[in-house]
Design a protein around this nucleic acid. Structure first.
Length: 746
DNA sequence: GTTGCGCAGATTTTT
DNA sequence: TCTGCGCAAC
């Protein structure tokens, strides 16, 4: 196998076959290329069979990409090669070994919203109002416990004593777990912990997998949580042929449980580990790479890599100071227009923002300019009500114990089984210790035996019709009739389709269209799957929410959050709203340095997506949460040495760093256009000049007659409405109405 | 079932 | 300022 297309460290990463290896791969360093070459090398040069290799990544997107690249670069049959996500790998193991854990192999996978319903139901049952304990807090708690790898087994309990001391939460957690178990369901975290549990309690099962997978590779290692770490290290324990690839500087999901210890501990667990750094960047211009390196070097929590590139210097980074959000989007529109005139295609342009809400103003301007664009992510297709409804039908067909799905559909569309009847059925199920479905099954086959429940004739006929529909569809599934047939049967005979058709509103039409889209997803699934079943379809869509939209085929501008941009690259990148309190977020500013470091990594990720041109914009004034905010430029902008950027002002007021600007500027003169680029566009937003004035801009020093000297942290509103947050010398933080507070400028 | 009021809260979201 | 929600009332 010819490895000449690789550089020296990449070659090393490919040829170092045995033993533990940690590859620290910087942004744009050819990580996937190396990983693919490594697998190819194992297959072609070391005669490893495809089924002996396990390659796990975090996202389906990454797994798909790796699979495709492998398929095109090797002649081996990679069908048996496991290139999957953690979650689908675990689902597969759990289905294969379900009997060990008292699950049946057709278990349902609950996503976050289903999980949330379970929690709400538990709180409700316990008479705890959601104001006392928010379901969100419980789900955070559960996530945390599972991310750390808790399982209900014989050991690993001491580690979790701090959680157990939260007795109420722990209690709810246990009830939640048994509720899931009763429903023959597993949540996302439970997929991982379930396998850990299995391996821990049944060493013979673990050994089977240890022998099977001679080589284990983990991609995006910086994003793994503790549970996933336990999982892969236990599989690799015997042969220790484990390769992890990651970049601590791109770790941006710690709030989802990603644990930096996984990188730091690796060498401790495997003292013999080889550490290989991929530091040459092939993606970006020199200026971009050097600037990004400077920014990330401010972090302490890192192993330290020094990125470099042979690429050209390239253009200066542009830092654009705008008057407000309106003029910021105006600038973006204008710059994109220029790029297009230069012949740049739209698919080479991306706009990144810290928060989803910031996409709107960009969308507005792009629509106005008639540039096609695509907002990546947004609302998940499968989260829509109508989709969830019909999927719930499918879930009941596959897994009768899925009572959550059953309660969802039992009266959807309305068939007269209201809350009272449902309550009766549920109570009866509890009394007889059977599932909800079993109850309605029993009642519909022998209604006279359940006369004491006093169910109306309407209810009786409704549930027996539902049971009949489910039973018939189950038979179809058993006979391996194509899923689309079952889907249409459910849709028609449940009355759901007719129900939707009665809704003539715009939303109603959209719902029907969404169902069409679902059915084409089903068709596509049938075509691409060897033995398509409803069961497989359900798993695929819960574990892969991606609605298979192609990337780079259509010529349109991409809009996404910075998080969403990870792993992608674009020649022209705009990073907007780069202001303190937004990026870094106000929450991270409140919570301290490790949170700021994560924001800095995020900023680094954003910068390193850009190949040729990076434009960072911010606004002096921005409408946020009901009042005008003067946030000032992101502190990260100041971490870029000025030799790498050109500072531009667009319709802006005053000069440079906005903390100074509002003081010395005569706003009454600033009526219309401040376009220093000579655009014909006239500044239109009606902000009366007096409204924009801030007497105490962020960063300015003041003196308070009671508290002494301090610094303005935040300023909102203006004129008589102006409020400022001040941090005093002794660390006290206070908020004042400027109108009343005894403040003095220093 | 649907409407409407009041109130909190308002990052990021690979699975 | 805007939205999403839980809950109460029709």
């Amino acid at each position: 196998m010819n490895l000449n297309f690789l550089n020296e460290s990449q070659k090393q990463a490919v040829q170092q076959v045995d033993g533990p290896i940690m590859i620290l791969a910087g942004a744009g360093s050819g990580k996937t290329r190396t990983l693919v070459a490594r697998i190819q090398y194992l297959l072609e040069e070391k005669n490893i069979s495809p089924y002996q290799i396990l390659a796990v990544t975090f996202s389906n997107k990454a797994a798909r990409e790796m699979r495709e690249r492998l398929a095109s670069s090797t002649s081996f049959n990679i069908g048996t090669l496991q290139v999957t996500t953690f979650h689908s790998f675990c689902a597969k193991v759990l289905r294969a070994e379900s009997s060990y854990l008292g699950l049946s192999k057709n278990f349902t996978i609950y996503d976050d919203s289903e999980t949330n319903s379970i929690i709400k139901a538990i709180l409700n049952k316990r008479g705890i109002s959601q104001k006392e304990i928010s379901p969100f807090m419980i789900s955070e708690f559960i996530d945390e416990v599972k991310n750390l790898g808790y399982f209900q087994g014989t050991s690993n309990t001491e580690e979790f004593s701090q959680f157990k001391s939260e007795t109420l939460y722990w209690d709810i957690f246990l009830e939640y777990e048994s509720e899931l178990h009763r429903s023959n369901a597993v949540d996302f975290g439970g997929l991982i912990t379930g396998v850990i549990n299995l391996f821990h309690n049944y060493p013979e099962v673990l050994e089977k997998y240890q022998n099977k997978f001679k080589y284990v590779l983990v991609d995006e290692y910086q994003d793994t949580n503790r549970a996933q770490f336990h999982l892969i290290t236990s599989i690799a324990q015997k042969l220790k042929n484990i390769t992890v690839v990651g970049d601590e500087d791109q770790s941006i999901y710690s709030w989802r449980g990603a644990d930096i210890r996984n990188i730091l501990d690796f060498e401790q667990i495997y003292p013999e580990a080889k550490i290989i750094k991929l530091e040459q960047n092939y993606r970006s211009s020199k200026k971009i790479i050097e600037a990004a390196s400077e920014v990330i070097s401010k972090n302490f929590a890192r192993k330290g890599k020094k990125m470099w590139t042979n690429n050209n210097d390239g253009n200066d980074i542009l830092v654009v100071e705008c008057r407000d959000d309106k003029s910021e989007s105006d600038y973006i529109g204008k710059r994109i227009r220029e790029l297009v005139l230069e012949g740049v295609s739209l698919k080479d342009i991306a706009v990144f923002y810290r928060n989803n809400s910031q996409s709107r103003m960009i969308e507005d301007v792009l629509r106005k300019e008639k540039f096609p664009y695509r907002v990546v992510a947004g609302i998940k297709f499968y989260d829509r009500k109508e989709i969830k409804d019909i999927l719930a039908y499918m879930r009941v067909v596959i897994n009768k114990k899925d009572s959550l799905a059953l309660t969802r559909i039992i009266n959807t569309p309305a068939r007269g089984v209201g809350p009272t009847s449902l309550r009766k059925l549920e109570d009866e199920a509890v009394r007889l210790n059977v599932s909800l479905y079993e109850i309605i099954e029993k009642i519909s086959s022998q209604p006279q035996e359940y006369k004491y429940l006093n169910l109306s004739a309407k209810v009786l006929s409704a549930i027996s019709q539902l049971v009949q529909l489910i039973t018939e569809t189950q038979l179809l599934e058993q006979d391996k009739i194509t899923p689309i047939f079952s889907y249409e049967k459910l849709l028609n005979e449940s009355g759901y389709l007719d129900f939707l058709k009665t809704d003539k509103s715009y939303e109603g039409m959209a719902r029907l269209e969404n169902l069409d889209e679902l059915s084409s997803a089903l068709k596509q699934f049938e075509e691409s799957t060897v033995e398509p079943t409803l069961e497989k379809f359900l798993e695929e869509i819960t574990l892969d929410s991606n609605t298979s939209q192609e990337n780079g085929v259509v010529d349109e501008i991409s809009l996404m959050t910075v998080h969403g941009s990870k792993g992608l690259e674009y020649p022209y990148v705009f990073l907007i709203a780069a202001e303190d309190n937004i990026f870094p977020s106000y929450k991270s500013l409140e919570s301290g340095s490790s949170a700021i470091e994560e924001e800095r990594r995020l900023f680094y990720v954003a910068m390193t997506r850009a190949m040729k041109e990076l434009v960072i914009t911010f606004s002096q004034a921005r409408m946020l949460w009901g009042s005008l905010k003067f946030n000032g430029p992101s502190q990260f902008i100041y971490e870029i040495p000025s030799k790498y950027y050109r500072w531009i002002q667009h319709q802006s007021i005053g000069h440079k760093h906005s903390s100074e600007k509002f003081e010395n500027y005569d706003f009454d003169q600033t009526t219309n256009s401040y376009d220093d680029f000579g655009s014909e566009k006239v500044y239109q937003r009606k902000v009366t000049p007096s409204l924009i004035r801030s007497n105490y801009p962020t960063g300015s020093k003041i003196k308070h007659s009671l508290y002494g000297e301090g610094t303005v942290l935040d300023s909102e509103g203006s004129g008589d409405e102006e409020k400022v947050t001040i941090l005093f010398k002794d660390g006290i933080r206070k908020k004042f109405m400027v109108k009343f507070a005894p403040l003095q400028k220093v």
